[in-house]
Amino acid sequence: CHSECLGNCSQPDDPTKCVACRNFYLDGRCVETCPPPYYHFQDWRCVNFSFCQDLHHKCKNSRRQGCHQYVIHNNKCIPECPSGYTMNSSNLLCTPCLGPCPKVCHLLEGEKTIDSVTSAQELRGCTVINGSLIINIRGGNNLAAELEANLGLIEEISGYLKIRRSYALVSLSFFRKLRLIRGETLEIGNYSFYALDNQNLRQLWDWSKHNLTITQGKLFFHYNPKLCLSEIHKMEEVSGTKGRQERNDIALKTNGDQASCENELLKFSYIRTSFDKILLRWEPYWPPDFRDLLGFMLFYKEAPYQNVTEFDGQDACGSNSWTVVDIDPPLRSNDPKSQNHPGWLMRGLKPWTQYAIFVKTLVTFSDERRTYGAKSDIIYVQTDATNPSVPLDPISVSNSSSQIILKWKPPSDPNGNITHYLVFWERQAEDSELFELDYCLKGLKLPSRTWSPPFESEDSQKHNQSEYEDSAGECCSCPKTDSQILKELEESSFRKTFEDYLHNVVFVPRKT
């Protein structure tokens, strides 16, 4: 048989008469490798580009789960590009990614509803959504962080984005990388972005840091009482949809009607710091009717980097990364020049730590249904340095008659930039024990000054392991946590139920 035959053949030295091919099969003959313009397919066939392209389009058009959109890589027609490569849609070739590779997620039936953290986790790592997304989240724990972890990498949506009755959302900033909504599939009414009845939605994105392009379709905003109209108009300008909307697409009466839409800028007039305090004062603000001013709200939190936005980490279910302080308005003076500047002394802060701070007014709604208010920009203030805590785990070892090696770990709280350490030492008198000992005694162990690591005695271990207080009263049991108490109650309830079950099964009433 021919060298490319495997198993047997019907005619000697003829690659077209093989029972099976050793390498690849091409047009009725066995070959060692697939010549151009053919590609290896499933490690035994040679196919042309049209064959591989037909497989790709067949799966793409069917949208069946589990099928493969075949691509070409290293002269092979394979189910998908290997790690580190992405497909070129024009020629199906796998090309190296520039940075992290995109991950295209194809949605069944063309859309997916995100109504819980669990459903959001199914899209973790996706960068391109081939379909439409509907966000409908009523509640949950730590929602802002969970949504950002699972949806934060999405850069492109081919269909539309719909935010509907998501009472738990305060902001859409968890879509931190969303840059493009194509609108290839539109919501009824030709809408590519749809926001309806979101009672706590206050911000779409921080438009000073976020760009969003909507290729096709219109915007729809109705019944978002805490979303200011200025935020919607800003989205029109940034996304390129200005002029597409009709009169009733953006409701003037049901958007922002319960919001404090600040239209003035508060400026800080005085800032002073110490290692654990920050004193702030800002310019006074009074609405047209000074009785509408209820006070100020001061927001602050630790910020290692200057990239904080107002609604980071917030949701309507209680999660809030900001510390909020309510401040009463100052006494009002008739003389504008003698107006008191409101302020606040922030206490209990960490030394040498940068804080993000902003302040906003708290006002009631005027009778004319106009909203007044003022808010400052987010500023960054760093507390002063102070003395560091003591170095940890000092170790001293003498390696000769004239040297001592000293080692330690950095302090747990540096409280500033540590530039150097101060080492103090003092000579001590020799131990009298060394002169009084009889060095001729056998088995004498000389006193040693070398360091030995501390260890816990058996008594201390027994005390720590004991669940009861000892007789001397030195140790006591740790208080039980809520989960331990709940577990004990469940076990007790189970024992009672099981005992009742045994009584009912074992003891049967005697027939009379």
Rank of each mutant, 00 (worst) to 15 (best):
D257K: 11
L293G: 09
W207Y: 07
E302Y: 08
I379W: 06
I137S: 01
C228A: 14
T185H: 13
T364D: 14
G295F: 13
G313V: 10
F221P: 00
I357T: 06
T254I: 09
I154H: 00
N387M: 01
K162V: 11
D377S: 14
Y300G: 01
I232F: 00
Q354Y: 07
T113C: 13
F268G: 00
P336Q: 10
P304M: 15
G131M: 01
T241R: 11
I163C: 07
R281K: 06
G373C: 10
K177P: 01
K407P: 00
L180V: 11
L392S: 13
T215E: 13
E262V: 14
Y305I: 06
L169F: 13
N263V: 05
F193N: 01
I157T: 01
L406F: 15
S132M: 01
P225H: 04
W282V: 04
S400M: 04
I157F: 02
G373Y: 14
N136A: 03
P288T: 09
K409F: 08
G189F: 07
K103D: 07
K277F: 04
L108D: 01
A316L: 15
R332P: 08
S173G: 08
L161V: 05
D393Q: 14
A259R: 08
T383R: 00
P410F: 12
K409E: 13
N334I: 11
L293H: 04
L108R: 08
G131Q: 01
N142T: 10
I188Y: 15
C317G: 08
A251F: 10
L204G: 04
Y194I: 12
L107F: 05
I135L: 03
G373D: 05
L147V: 02
T309F: 12
S321D: 04
A195L: 10
L186V: 04
Y194S: 08
H233C: 06
D257G: 04
D289V: 06
D257L: 09
R202P: 02
E231K: 14
P351E: 04
L123E: 01
T185D: 10
I114S: 00
C126K: 01
Q314Y: 01
T386W: 12
S401I: 15
S119Y: 07
P288R: 06
S171V: 03
K350V: 07
F268H: 02
G125Y: 05
P351I: 06
A145W: 05
L108Q: 10
G373M: 12
D115A: 05
P287E: 14
Y270T: 01
R291C: 14
I154N: 00
I214D: 00
T213F: 10
L279R: 07
D206Y: 07
E109I: 04
K337S: 04
E302T: 13
D206F: 05
T309M: 05
H341V: 06
N200F: 08
C317W: 03
R138E: 09
I357P: 01
H341P: 11
V324T: 05
N150C: 04
K409D: 10
Q306M: 09
R202Q: 01
C317F: 10
S333A: 06
Y270S: 02
L345M: 08
I188R: 14
R179H: 14
W205C: 02
Y160P: 01
S402M: 09
G318P: 06
F175E: 00
L280I: 05
L252E: 04
Y223N: 11
K209D: 02
C261W: 04
Q199K: 13
L252F: 11
E231M: 05
W286M: 03
K360H: 01
G343N: 10
T127W: 02
M346V: 13
V359K: 01
S173E: 06
L108I: 09
G313S: 09
G125M: 11
T241S: 08
G343A: 07
T127C: 08
D292N: 14
Q306H: 06
Y223W: 10
S173Y: 10
K103F: 14
C317H: 15
K253P: 06
I250F: 14
A149V: 09
V363S: 03
Q203M: 11
I327P: 04
I135T: 03
L108H: 15
Y355L: 01
G131Y: 01
T213E: 04
Q403K: 01
S239R: 10
G295S: 05
R347N: 07
R281S: 14
D335E: 14
S132N: 05
L331N: 06
E237Q: 13
D393I: 06
S166A: 05
L293I: 08
F174V: 08
S389H: 13
M297W: 15
R370G: 14
G159W: 01
Y355Q: 00
I137N: 02
R244V: 14
T361N: 08
Q199F: 14
L169I: 12
L201R: 01
C105Q: 00
K277P: 00
T241Q: 11
G343I: 09
I181N: 00
D377K: 15
T386M: 08
L178K: 00
F193W: 04
V325G: 03
T241W: 11
R281A: 09
C317R: 02
G373I: 12
C317K: 02
L331R: 06
S333W: 14
A356Y: 00
L123Y: 07
I134W: 07
W408T: 01
H222K: 01
L180W: 15
D115Q: 03
D326R: 01
G313C: 04
S119K: 06
N334C: 03
C105E: 00
K242P: 11
G256L: 06
D289C: 14
L266R: 01
N307W: 14
S338C: 15
V238I: 09
L219T: 07
S321I: 05
N198L: 05
I405M: 01
K350I: 08
N320R: 14
R165H: 10
D315M: 14
E264T: 06
Y270V: 01
R176D: 10
R165F: 15
L172W: 00
G348I: 02
L153M: 10
L172P: 02
W352E: 07
S119Q: 07
V363N: 14
I214V: 11
L107P: 15
W207I: 05
P304Q: 11
G373H: 07
Q382E: 11
K253M: 07
L147K: 00
L298R: 00
Y355T: 00
E122K: 11
L153A: 13
K407T: 12
D335W: 14
R124I: 15
Y372L: 08
S132A: 14
K350R: 14
Q382V: 05
I114W: 01
N190Y: 07
T127M: 15
L107Y: 03
P391S: 02
I157L: 04
G256I: 03
P394D: 09
F220N: 10
R164V: 06
L294N: 13
G140Q: 15
R347P: 09
I114K: 00
F193L: 11
G217S: 05
N340K: 11
P336K: 08
G183S: 03
E187D: 14
S173C: 09
T215W: 01
N150D: 04
L153R: 07
G183T: 02
L265T: 04
M346W: 02
G140P: 12
R179L: 11
Q121A: 04
Q354C: 15
L147I: 14
W282G: 00
S376L: 01
V104C: 03
E231N: 04
R347A: 02
K226G: 06
N211A: 10
M235E: 00
A374W: 14
S274M: 12
E310T: 02
L196C: 05
F311V: 03
D393F: 12
L151K: 00
D206T: 03
P330E: 15
I405H: 03
K267W: 07
C126W: 00
K242D: 08
Y191P: 10
W286K: 12
G125R: 04
S389L: 11
E184R: 04
P336I: 07
D206M: 06
L293F: 05
N320D: 07
F358C: 02
S401H: 11
N141S: 12
F220Y: 15
N255T: 04
L153T: 12
A385W: 10
R369Q: 13
G189I: 01
L294F: 10
A385K: 12
E264W: 14
E146Y: 11
E237P: 08
E187S: 06
S260N: 02
Y380E: 01
D328F: 09
Q339W: 06
S376N: 01
L227Q: 03
S239I: 15
C228L: 04
G243V: 01
H106L: 08
T215I: 15
F290M: 14
N307D: 15
L266I: 07
P329W: 14
Q354K: 03
V325L: 14
V324K: 02
D326C: 03
E122R: 09
E187W: 12
